[in-house]
């Protein structure tokens, strides 16, 4: 079941700063994983390890149970299966127009022009930006650039897409559009892994969460369980997601029974309030 396993991963930056300190993490097929933690906790460094951009100082990464290699052919095969979307879309968009940029990955896979063109069409469609195909990349809004960057990774049809802070800096509508697009990618068989410091988004959207603090994973597990663990949340400098906190309060006040499901998002929270007897 597990697609990617991280075992005791350690990363030291030049000068002896430990960015990752013996991390264990499991990415399961089809399970949305949110990696949450304060700024500087090591989330981005971990993502760069997960597609082989960085090489660990210690520990190992297993893909479907087999340790990954770092030869250029290994890396090529690895990156074909694991896509990466950087936080700043401008760091990965380089071609003149949107369609050209998205075609870059598929052509690197060795696909024919026709196949690549089909991949580009499908990816732009999935991200809801088919109308931007011929737009120059430097004339896009922030949210559009983000979606183009994701389309560029998705067009390679990886099994996992790693996204660094996909919703950071997006407005409400942009966030909704992006999350909807991510669900489309998931429906196409891609496993979603993303970093965020937005616990409310992580709680509402992810299935599993890994809590990061100072280069260590404090806990990984089902969002409802992990976010309820006050000691983990406090140690990582995070807060309990608001909907979860309200749900727990409703339970302690006796408005919800202990067996009722707790609300996950805004809509479920409002539905819960409707059902509460005055």
């Amino acid at each position: 079941m597990s697609l990617l396993d991280v075992r005791g991963l350690t990363h030291m930056y030049l000068g002896g700063v430990t960015a990752l300190d013996g991390i264990d993490l499991t990415i399961k097929r089809g399970v949305r994983l949110a990696i949450v933690g304060a700024n500087g906790a090591g989330k981005t460094t971990l993502l760069l390890h997960l597609n082989g951009t960085l090489k660990p100082s210690g520990g190992e990464i297993l893909m479907e149970g087999r340790a990954v290699g770092y030869k250029s052919t290994d890396l090529q095969a690895w990156r074909k299966r694991v896509g990466l979307v950087l936080q700043d879309a401008d760091d990965q968009l380089f071609a003149a127009t949107v369609a050209e940029d998205v075609s870059f990955g598929p052509l690197n896979l060795g696909l024919s022009d026709d196949q690549a063109r089909q991949r580009v069409r499908d990816a732009l469609e999935a991200l809801g930006i088919a109308d931007l195909a011929d737009r120059p990349t430097h004339m896009l809004s922030f949210g559009q650039k983000k979606r183009v960057a994701i389309a560029g990774a998705f067009a390679m049809q990886p099994e996992i897409i790693l996204m660094d802070e996909p919703t950071a800096g997006l407005d409400y509508q942009g966030t909704c559009a992006l999350l909807a697009a991510m669900k489309t990618l998931e429906a196409a068989g891609t496993t979603l892994v993303f970093t965020t410091h937005d616990v409310d988004m992580a709680y509402g959207f992810a299935h599993e969460v890994a809590v990061f603090d100072h280069g260590k994973v404090l806990a990984q597990g089902e969002v409802g369980e992990i976010f309820r663990d006050q000691s983990v949340i406090d140690k990582a400098g995070l807060s309990i997601p608001l909907t979860l906190e309200i749900g727990l309060k409703a339970q302690s006040l006796g408005l919800l029974s202990a067996t009722d499901a707790l609300p996950r998002n805004r809509a479920e929270l409002l539905a819960m309030l409707e059902n509460v007897q005055p």
Binding site: D91, F94, A99, F104
Partner: peptide, 24 residues
Amino acid sequence: ARAHRMEVGLMARGWHGEMRVLSP
């Protein structure tokens, strides 16, 4: 710094020396 990050971005997308895109 940006050139370095861009290289990471290109590597992640399978770049190995040639910039080929589908041009209109």
